[in-house]
Nucleic acid binder design. Sequence first.
DNA 1: TTTCCAAATGGAAACGTTTTATATCGCATG
DNA 2: CATGCGATATAAAACGTTTCCATTTGGAAA
Lengths: 337, 337
Amino acid sequence: MNSNNVTIYDVAREAGVSMATVSRVVNGNPNVKPTTRKKVQDAIDRLGYRPNAVARGLASKKTTTVGVIVPDISNIFFADLARGIEDVATMYKYNIILGNSDSSRDKEVHLLNTLLGKQVDGIIFMGGRLHEDLVEEFKKSPVPIVLAATLNQGYDLPAVNIDYEQAAYDATQMLINHGHDRVGFITGPLEQQINGEKKFAGYRRALEDAGLPFHENDMILGNYTYASGLEAMQKMLQRDDCPKAIFAGTDEMALGVIHAIQDAGYSVPNDFEVVGHDNTRLATMIRPKLTTVVQPMYDIGAVAMRLLTKILNAEEIEEKNVVLPHRIERRDSLRQD
Amino acid sequence: MNSNNVTIYDVAREAGVSMATVSRVVNGNPNVKPTTRKKVQDAIDRLGYRPNAVARGLASKKTTTVGVIVPDISNIFFADLARGIEDVATMYKYNIILGNSDSSRDKEVHLLNTLLGKQVDGIIFMGGRLHEDLVEEFKKSPVPIVLAATLNQGYDLPAVNIDYEQAAYDATQMLINHGHDRVGFITGPLEQQINGEKKFAGYRRALEDAGLPFHENDMILGNYTYASGLEAMQKMLQRDDCPKAIFAGTDEMALGVIHAIQDAGYSVPNDFEVVGHDNTRLATMIRPKLTTVVQPMYDIGAVAMRLLTKILNAEEIEEKNVVLPHRIERRDSLRQD
DNA sequence: TTTCCAAATGGAAACGTTTTATATCGCATG
DNA sequence: CATGCGATATAAAACGTTTCCATTTGGAAA
């Protein structure tokens, strides 16, 4: 029997009550006599009734669905984040509509509007940078928006991040403390807020605090991929004043860096030391295993979603701008102290 | 101005027409005089009207949303698949509700019912094995379901896959042709249909066709992860009759295998040859680069979604059980011929 | 002109719930 | 034996669209 198209009205008739009563039973409203409740529940089971969430959404103005805008779900980084979001969402009975933006302003805006049209109860946004017109749209949004692994750039938006500046500082400092007077910085495009403002700033501050000058050409920008890390390091190796310590903006780039070094006949960590960023699963899938900044992607996603549920339930919120702790996981791409 | 809560009725009044006409304009119905269309469009722009997809879904019984059930989105494999699905979905104006099942029967069934309750127009399912009660639910589904990278096990369900048996055959044969009379097979649990029935069968058939016996202990089962591949190979290396050729069930396992070999002081491909499976991005992130069976995850997702749209549009379908081509990408973990 | 027909528009029902205001029931209380 | 009051239950009005049917409109043909 197709459990389809049996409505609350059918159940009501079958159970000999009104649809309002069925609605109460379905929604766990306490004002129902136990015997009635049982009668209704039996009818529901007998008919295989499944509430229509669309009708429910229209009547109640709540869809128990949240939108998730992500640059690219096939990126391990965002996939992990998404998993954190989804797990907490499930916990709170929400479902997730997922959309990829490719960090394109147009797609972001379009996606946002589609999601709002679908009446999601809230949105979690990830992106490299908040374009101005996107923020405009955010302001007009009738539902709350939470940023995950995305800086709010001073706008009054709830966000969950780590302290990227400090993390980069720590990583760079760790390398400096190992006796290097030059530290290479191989990372992604500077337009990306986190990368261009935070990591870069942390890197420079660490140099500065150590009394070291910043050399323009010790920094090479790629696109976060393995190939671009490899290529950047190859380029750097051609210089005779090549830094012997490298801080890479992502683990994937770090793998490329290590391979470039090894391909050139050098050893990590004996000749070169390398620190990565993110602590993706990749970090242990290389020899030597990668020392890396731990950015808890799953947790960021989970916390962002939890924050969203708090806003939706009008729970008290201590801090809208959450900064999760980071640390550096020491593995073999760094020499023992 | 909050573009919220302005309804089709407001637009109708503003434009001096009926809501039916507004509806026609919004839906691109041709039976509207150009001047009227313009008038309505202006009113829409002026008011910032955004159609309510929930109300639309209730009235039209179409939500332009499809459900996607995936074991674990944080797995690079499924993330890639999901991206393929989403891209094609976007192309056809669908959105995606994504849910993780962790391959748990209960979660799969629960997720399915939630999605059906949300009135999705169709579902794409990925999972290691089709449990019987899940198939029961599938049969009752009022909307079409397409399997992606999941065998239909003889049930009459549309599915998109590659020929896993033949792929495993090809990989094993390639190793045999390199002069090995034993080939190790390190893979995941046999309960998983694709793994336990197809890959395993292909492996055995290749041995058989080459007149080689199947040694029970040349096969080690793990859980697809890097760590389990590493561990399995370490175990195998302890045997004095250890196979010098390894076919790994996934790239991630293959990386573990290669590292185990290297850790033991041997060389790939000189001492050992290794072939992986999937051709994830990992395959090139190792030295030597991994020779691997190409399973086009993105394409499987894309084709599965396209197939679903065909079913939804009642387009003609040549073949419901799609088998995409596979091949072996030769890289350095195999010696030159 | 009138007649007719297609094109354009409008009216109202339907979609399946939630929710509010209202009614009824059962029962202790005075 | 009425009275009143929670506790339950009902009826009906939203919710914002689509869609079916009916009606009007504007020309072209007669």
